[in-house]
């Protein structure tokens, strides 16, 4: 067990998988000579050469589609988007090709590809660089999505995503890359579809994913000062979704808040709320609340940005409303 940054844990996962399978390669903007825009692929060019660690032109549609095509031919591409904001240029390839090829071909042509990169806001990057992209991906059947919140989860989930036979989006957090945590040295994977109870409380369930796990834990600490103990359930994987874990925590606390970085309209939280009311209605003592980004494009000004982002204070307020 070593203490690694989230960034290096992702690097370790890619190296782990590239060591065991020659069909895995990494392609994206700045991934090779520059060591990655966020240094996630540091040292990989030297280790694997330019056959397997490939700088692409700034052509998201093109290189994402190339990677999808390579996957249909049996390779296992890791397609890095410098941020998922830029992947909107490539959504035709993700939604129309990667997600549907296996179905349209009646199971003949699978697409074992990973799309990875940061999602969500960082600091004052304004509207086009600060958006949570989960919904766009998870909306389409045929795509899977994981959102690691810790270094250990980052390594295990990315490794599992690379081995998975379907398109898997791995959405990272730009502000998480420097987060440190214990990461097992040995080869391991964290299966998709397994949520993780990051904190056990019992009074209220804060369900969340990705970077917001840290905000949820902060809110739980604040609530604990007033004697309220919260469960913090980190979904880790949005699709497949660990429904059992969601229902379990709700059954225990009878109250739930969904926290996410994205917008509310048709967001991940909307799905989770629908699920809870459909399948655990009798367990609920209060409506399920959502805490999301304000329903506006991300503003640049520091004070407005703070207002727009979901934060621990908002989570505490939401929890109080359901208690």
């Amino acid at each position: 067990m070593a203490e690694l940054t989230y960034r290096d844990a992702l690097n370790a996962a890619m190296c782990q998988e590239m060591d065991r399978d020659d069909s895995v390669f990494l392609m994206g903007e700045e991934v090779a000579e520059y060591d990655g825009a966020y240094k996630v692929s540091r040292g990989m060019l030297a280790r694997y050469g330019d056959r397997r660690v490939v700088d692409s032109p700034i052509s998201e549609l093109g290189f994402a589609g190339l990677c999808v095509g390579a996957a249909t031919a049996g390779l296992r591409p890791i397609c890095e988007f410098m941020t998922f904001n830029f992947s909107f240029l490539a959504l035709d390839q993700v939604i129309n090709n990667a997600a549907k090829m296996f179905y349209m071909s009646n199971g003949q042509i699978s697409v074992p590809i990973v799309f990875r990169g940061p999602t969500g806001a960082a600091l004052q990057l304004s509207a086009q660089h600060s958006q949570a992209c989960e919904t766009y991906y998870v909306h389409a059947p045929g795509v899977k999505l994981v959102t690691p919140a810790t270094p250990a989860d980052a390594k295990g989930l990315l490794a599992a995503a690379i081995r998975d036979d379907d398109p898997v989006a791995v959405m990272e957090g730009e502000l998480l890359y420097n987060v440190r945590g214990e990461v097992p040295d040995e080869e391991y994977v964290i299966p998709l579809g397994v949520a993780d109870l990051k904190r056990s409380g019992g009074d209220v369930s804060i369900i969340t994913h990705g970077k917001m796990v840290h905000v949820a834990l902060q809110a739980a600490t604040m609530l604990a000062r007033d004697g309220i103990e919260a469960d913090v359930l980190d979904l880790r994987s949005i699709r497949p979704l660990d429904v059992d874990a969601i229902l379990e925590t709700v059954a225990r606390t009878n109250r739930a808040v969904y926290l996410e970085e994205g917008w509310p309209f048709a967001g991940v939280g909307a799905q989770i709320v629908a699920l809870i009311q459909e399948e655990a209605f009798d367990d609920l003592d209060a409506p399920v609340m959502r805490v999301t980004q304000a329903d506006v494009p991300m503003p640049y000004a520091k004070n407005l940005e703070q207002l727009a982002k979901p934060g621990a204070r908002g989570v505490v307020e939401a929890c109080r409303r359901v208690l």
Binding site: F102, G107, S110, P141, D164, G193, D242, V243
Partner: peptide, 9 residues
Amino acid sequence: AEINEHGRL
């Protein structure tokens, strides 16, 4: 192509 052992797809 792969129905994961855990979770709902």
